[in-house]
Design a protein around this nucleic acid. Structure first.
Lengths: 196, 196
DNA sequence: CATCATCTAGACCACTCGGTCTAGACCAAA
DNA sequence: TTTGGTCTAGACCGAGTGGTCTAGATGATG
């Protein structure tokens, strides 16, 4: 059902929306701006999306598709030590941030802006972050098994902490348009987590 | 010069703005909503503030005045061990979050929403976070001196990491309207930082 | 060709936005 | 009492918003 190639206009709108929402936020982007950026008339927009909220939620889905890909790529190679697989994931993500000029993470941006008034967005984005933590918990558990993390480690809790702290570092990176907070946060985190 | 009591209307507007901006964000709050919430006519608003941007920046100043107060209160008592002073600060901040129903931190909220398009807000908010880290670096340095932190600790870097990770936990707390991410993040952080 | 659903095209609408403007209330000083 | 600055009061404005509507282009199928 989803295997047919996406209509061109729909894909153009999602691509433009991803870029614009990351830069300007939900209320900072008018539908007209998305239309202009993607050279698409308004009729097409409302054919493919129910309204602006539906559009933004589908942009989040598109963003998460990229995250899923990065997770699959990073965590698949079991010949790499588990902690390095986790770091590799964040390396891929940071590489994505670089392409946008270090505007941080769409989940953090929309989450901050909308979660005060929209339970729909709040739950959706909270679920996305939980999903990432769940995926990361597996290699962390493996790392504990092979002795790369202390036996007292709770992999799920550690993964949640890692994702949360990453979002904080992503905010700081966005404020300063600088990748340094991301790398420094990972250095601290892995240094700290491996001690006990 | 600043010692005279603030005009009542100005204070009412700032109070209402703080609450509304935290909940709905910059573009989610119209000036009319601030006027309605503070029972103030529009003429007063534009008498006291140049425009909406100026207003939001002054709301940030008001927010930071509270942070300064919390820092002063928490860090002053040298009879308390330095690491407990730092934790005490975050305890006060978390208590403030509780009063709003765990909507997180205004700096994180406005920072995410506006830093993509407004260098003014980006630099202002980055400066606020840096200031907090600077203040926290002092007790962390003291903790290192008395042996509560490893000698290899870089107090300024550790303080910056702490503030960044706190902002990430505050986002998560906002998404779920739950204080747990805040406490868990602090537990992890202090456990980790005190190991070598 | 004829039919019909899908998608493009953009004019149009009601409404809200940030911001301006004028009028007047209030009060201290002359 | 008159003056003049500060602050309140809200009508008003142009621009832009999200969303609707009708018309037509397109393309697969009978």
């Amino acid at each position: 059902m989803d295997n047919q190639p996406l209509p061109a206009a729909r894909q153009r709108l999602l691509d433009a929306g991803l870029e614009l929402l990351l830069e300007r936020g939900y209320h900072g982007v008018g539908i007209q701006a998305v239309l202009d950026a993607s050279l698409t008339p308004k009729g097409s927009f409302y054919h493919h999306f129910r309204d602006k909220e539906d559009f933004a939620l589908q942009v989040i889905d598109a963003y998460m598709a990229g995250v899923h890909g990065a997770l699959d790529v990073s965590l698949a190679d079991v010949s790499v030590p588990p902690l390095e697989r986790v770091r590799g994931f964040f390396g891929l993500v940071a590489g994505g941030y670089a392409k946008d000029g270090y505007l941080g993470c769409l989940l953090g941006g929309l989450g901050q802006e909308l979660s005060g008034v929209s339970p729909v967005f709040a739950q959706r984005i909270d679920g996305c972050l939980s999903y990432i933590a769940d995926r990361l918990a597996e290699p962390l558990d493996e790392a504990r098994s092979v002795g790369d993390l202390p036996p007292s480690t709770d992999p799920k809790a550690l993964a949640t902490r890692l994702v949360d702290c990453w979002e904080g570092a992503a905010l700081r990176s966005r404020l300063s348009r600088d990748p340094a907070p991301l790398r420094e946060m990972l250095d601290f985190f892995f240094h700290a987590a491996t001690r006990e």
